[in-house]
Amino acid sequence: MKQLLLALAAVIATTTFAQEEDLFDLLDEGENQQITFATFKGTQLINAATNETPGEGVLQYVIAHRFGSFNDDYLYNFFGLDNAQVRMQLDYGVTDRLNVGIGRSSFLKVADSFMKYKLIQQQSGTTPIPVSITLHSTLNYRNARYTDGIEHDLTDRFSYMHQAIIARKWNRSLSTVVSPSLVHFNLVPTANDPNTTAHVTLGARYKLTNRMALTGEGTLLSNREFSGGERFTTPIAFGVDIETGGHVFQLHISNTRAMNAPYWMARNPYSVSNGGLFLGFNISRVFTIKE
């Protein structure tokens, strides 16, 4: 009996000692679910939107320029600066997931508003989520006068873009985005032309250092040729992101000049082959309004 007791005690004691040995292992057994951060530096890749939004209580101001083309009296126009297209944007992080904003562009004097919502966030840990999905919608109003001599309704001036931004950060350097999108113009050249067109944006960024990254994007489109003889091209752009504290500088070269999604995505008349190549930049600055 005594022997049995001794054996039992020894077993219990050993188990406990074994547990002690593993005390530090307990540290690793806890919660390890992590939301992937900083898939992209900015809320925009170049022209295309990324899955990112400013955090809650953050006001963001973005100023963007698209300079004149290289073959349009380039030096006379001071490297295209003299005929730059400009867009300004002000947006706010209502919550960490919801972002709303307004913008004004010199291209066709388009005013816009947009909403972005982080539906799913990429996560690692015990229940990993492989991608982030952000929903993004823009409403655009053309203020520019029509020159076709026809009386236009107010509704003619509206266009829309809706998209699901599917992003993945593969590792700390490489992030990619695939964004199926729909563009709708209330007014199209003829009744034979589609009001709604489908598009897919493909984009990527590769970080060179902690504060610098290369970016690139291109957008496939469903309808290139319209009945009026217009032909629209595939928008492409390459750039570099430079981050300094509260600013992100994005310098790039692209074949587009418009900065509102329906126009650069679905109505881009320029192509590199006939000199349609433009330098441009986006600069964003964030202000924490609510801490």
Partner: peptide
Amino acid sequence: GVQVLMTSFQFKRAL
């Protein structure tokens, strides 16, 4: 022993 996940630190500013 003490351990903390770096991403669990909450700052006042998201950036």
